[in-house]
Design a protein around this nucleic acid. Sequence first.
DNA 1: TTTCAACTCCCCAATTATGGCGAGGATGAG
DNA 2: CTCATCCTCGCCATAATTGGGGAGTTGAAA
Lengths: 242, 242
Amino acid sequence: MGFLEKVPQLDDVIARLECAEHLEELQTIIEWLRDHYAVDDMVYHWVSSNGTQYGCGTYDPKWVARYLEKGYLRIDPVVIGCYQRFHPVDWKRLDWSGKAARAFMKDAMAHGVGHQGYSIPIRGPNGQFALFTMSHSCDDDQWNSFTELNRRDLILLAHYFNQTALMLEPGRKPEPTQPLSPREVETMTLLAVGYSRAQVAETLAISEHTLRVYIESARFKLGAMNTTHAVARAMARGQIVV
Amino acid sequence: MGFLEKVPQLDDVIARLECAEHLEELQTIIEWLRDHYAVDDMVYHWVSSNGTQYGCGTYDPKWVARYLEKGYLRIDPVVIGCYQRFHPVDWKRLDWSGKAARAFMKDAMAHGVGHQGYSIPIRGPNGQFALFTMSHSCDDDQWNSFTELNRRDLILLAHYFNQTALMLEPGRKPEPTQPLSPREVETMTLLAVGYSRAQVAETLAISEHTLRVYIESARFKLGAMNTTHAVARAMARGQIVV
DNA sequence: TTTCAACTCCCCAATTATGGCGAGGATGAG
DNA sequence: CTCATCCTCGCCATAATTGGGGAGTTGAAA
């Protein structure tokens, strides 16, 4: 029997997610889900611009604090593995070799994290990255039947959950994106694919002096310190497609 | 009545998607869907590293050729709009002001693209970006009832479809991502957020000479021409989180 | 134990990017 | 018609980046 199979209220959950306006609501919903479906933990948890982890669902606060303090974000095979993947993934299929990873797992289990887990990666338009995770301490058979039977529900849930979480993410909204002019976009794009200023000027058939005007105005619009920063921001904000 | 509402075979479709190994299969499935659910067009369509559009579902090949030739990828409000969004979006809610956008729409409709549309953005781990689009020529009321009733099915479908399309995307796989060392990652990350070399060196408490070694080796590993290019590639490949 | 990758430091000269200045024509929105 | 924005071009001096060398230590994996 799957855990979520018996959830006719999935619609209600999604409806609540769709109109959620604060992170606290996500917390409430996720705790409700956990309690009703006997999963040890259901967690949304996301990573963003500076590698910060903003939200953490129902993990023990002590564990969350330790996780952040120890910088586990850059060690945790779940985060690292999902960051490069398209698909939802069972923790067992991740790469747990490596000393740091094993030490991390040991520490996690000492803090009450289940040894079975399933995480679904979702990405936002500006490089935001979120995980929706379920964990449990049951045996392999039970766990497999859970994930196999309910993948579809879980994906839908994760999709709504993470989308909501990413949209509500603090510190993202007050970044008004000033549009770049077509020439500026071309300039930034060519720089991003490795052209030097001289090459870009030649490609666009303009003088290098003119090119500089574009770079500087783009840098200004993007609030960037230098060309590299400007290109990085333009990419991160989706203003250029590279 | 929704279009997809009557689709008990959704499960079959997803099962086929899950085991698809070639792009042709997606084409087949999408044509089947279109025929059965009376949507003028169902399209998967994706954008990638160099802004190329690799796959295009069931649009008229003439239109696809024209689209590519004219560089509509950088004009199309559907692509531009969805690229910055989390949520599925109705074409009506996009920004169609601007001369280029209107000219594009006119051209599109002249080539048989419906005036109603709904697109769902999905992203992959390395900056890949895909759209799953449905279009139709019905009136607003019919269209609204379609999108409102079936959003959930569509999202699931889009999720599987785009994920599959992105995974099968040609030209992505043979790009072996050479891992960056921790120091290199730190270097690239700090450069991406606007630090100059001197500032990065100071932050990492190493000499600027050492820093140069990292930058150069990262550039080498990433196959980049210069620092800006290296940072752009590292970002695009998800090797740094900015 | 050896080997390999990562981390650290140094020099010099050439190339490239940047900062600040000014200026004219085209185009589209109000 | 006017204002704003975009596109285009120029100069000069300074600051920053890059290319090409070489070399020692540590630590983990084979």
